[in-house]
Amino acid sequence: MDISILKKEVIQYSKQIGIDKIGFTTADVFTELKERLRRQQELGYQSGFEKGTIEERTEPRRLVPEAQSIIAIAVAYPSRMKNAPRGTKENRRGIFCRASWGVDYHVVLRERLEKLANYIKEKVPDAVTKSMVDTGELSDRAVAERAGIGFSGKNCSIITPEFGSYVYLGELITNIPFTPDKPIEDSCGDCRKCLDACPTGALVQGGQLNAQRCIAFLTQTKTFLPDEFRDKIGNRLYGCDTCQQVCPRNRHVDFHHQTEFEPDPEVAKPLLKPLLKISNRTFREKFGSMSGSWRGKKPIQRNAILALAHFKDKTAVKDLIEVMREDVRPEIRGTAAWTLGKIGTEEAFAAIEEAIAYETDERVIYEMEKGLQFRRND
């Protein structure tokens, strides 16, 4: 088999199965990434969601000993929602980040990588392949950058010339020695719009992210959200798009040709109050097919409560009181109490004072006291 011909055939086939961009690189060690990951680990900047050791994340042959090449793919997703519903004072809405719109991209990209692997194995029966999307050991961004998919921007996203940074990434390790493609030159220049716009200062410097401060990470946690971030979360239920939205490379970028990623407006931008008491079954039925549901309903509910605090939504007071009194989860009860104080009606303060008398969880009591402090500060 002529490898150069096979490469052209793989590229052509990738277009037929809905892959927007494809690139090839070697299976060599990601030396620079290894040093960067070690530094991130030392600084405590990792999210904790990373899979594998630093060696496994930077040495492809630890995953596939026969590895010769890595095929990187990119699939575009929309940046704008058609017929987006507008919230009102009586019916406020939250928002899921664009990368969570439509069908879970892990599912979609894995299916396309599986088709690609099967195609390669039809051509080369003894081909060895291993694919991964986001949750694998390899860094999708590092692979995509070296394979020429795009350059790694200051916002820590891969920025493609065609689709900006609104792309999902995946890769396929193989034992076939494809000719590698050339990386794309970094084009951020002196621009620092993403650095200046980051709500929490999570972008420490161009290309360096403190994941512990990143709203995209914080919205996925299940504990009490640290106080300093509560006013920063806005109405975000999952993820954060700020550093992508302000990027000049994303201006006028909006692709809707991948139908799986077309958002259902009522799911991607749902009403907040119904989320407070949503059952597990209803949550799975409504949100289960999107990537933003992977941590379950608890983080989404906590974020919805904080979004109501952001809006100071007085119409939600009765619902929040019920949650504070009856929810079995301390993080939800406590966050509801804090939000009631933030909203600041007399009914809200009276309910906190009543509930604090029989609350037994010290963490919830602490949140109740912080809620009552809003009245003292007025």
Results as ranks from 00 to 15, higher is better:
155 N>W: 05
198 C>V: 06
181 D>G: 01
158 I>R: 11
171 E>P: 03
181 D>P: 04
191 C>Y: 06
172 L>M: 12
169 L>T: 03
161 P>M: 03
178 F>H: 11
196 D>W: 12
198 C>I: 06
204 V>T: 14
191 C>T: 05
161 P>L: 09
204 V>P: 02
165 S>K: 09
180 P>H: 02
156 C>F: 14
159 I>P: 06
158 I>Q: 03
196 D>T: 05
201 G>E: 09
197 A>D: 14
210 N>E: 00
175 N>E: 08
189 G>Q: 13
182 K>Q: 14
166 Y>I: 07
188 C>K: 05
168 Y>L: 00
207 G>E: 08
192 R>C: 03
203 L>N: 06
169 L>M: 10
199 P>S: 02
196 D>G: 02
196 D>N: 07
170 G>Q: 08
156 C>L: 07
163 F>M: 01
201 G>L: 10
203 L>Q: 06
189 G>F: 14
197 A>H: 02
169 L>K: 00
210 N>P: 03
176 I>Y: 12
163 F>G: 00
157 S>E: 14
186 D>F: 07
185 E>P: 00
170 G>I: 01
206 G>Y: 04
204 V>S: 10
151 F>R: 09
205 Q>C: 01
187 S>D: 15
190 D>E: 09
180 P>Y: 11
178 F>Q: 08
169 L>G: 02
178 F>E: 01
204 V>H: 10
206 G>H: 01
176 I>V: 14
176 I>K: 04
189 G>H: 11
192 R>Q: 12
171 E>T: 08
176 I>W: 09
182 K>R: 15
157 S>R: 04
187 S>C: 03
208 Q>A: 11
208 Q>R: 08
184 I>E: 10
154 K>R: 14
178 F>L: 03
186 D>E: 08
178 F>S: 06
204 V>K: 12
192 R>T: 12
193 K>S: 13
166 Y>H: 12
180 P>S: 10
183 P>M: 01
182 K>T: 13
153 G>F: 04
167 V>K: 12
206 G>C: 04
156 C>K: 14
157 S>H: 14
205 Q>G: 00
189 G>A: 13
209 L>G: 01
186 D>I: 01
171 E>Q: 12
198 C>F: 00
202 A>G: 10
162 E>K: 14
193 K>M: 09
207 G>M: 00
176 I>D: 07
178 F>Y: 12
180 P>R: 14
155 N>T: 08
182 K>D: 15
190 D>H: 14
183 P>W: 00
169 L>R: 00
156 C>A: 15
207 G>N: 04
198 C>H: 03
177 P>H: 10
159 I>F: 05
202 A>H: 01
201 G>C: 04
155 N>R: 07
167 V>N: 09
207 G>W: 01
168 Y>H: 15
177 P>A: 13
208 Q>P: 02
188 C>H: 06
153 G>E: 01
153 G>N: 12
202 A>K: 05
182 K>P: 02
152 S>Y: 15
173 I>E: 11
199 P>R: 11
200 T>E: 10
177 P>S: 09
153 G>K: 05
197 A>Y: 09
160 T>D: 15
154 K>H: 15
167 V>G: 02
198 C>K: 06
177 P>C: 10
152 S>G: 04
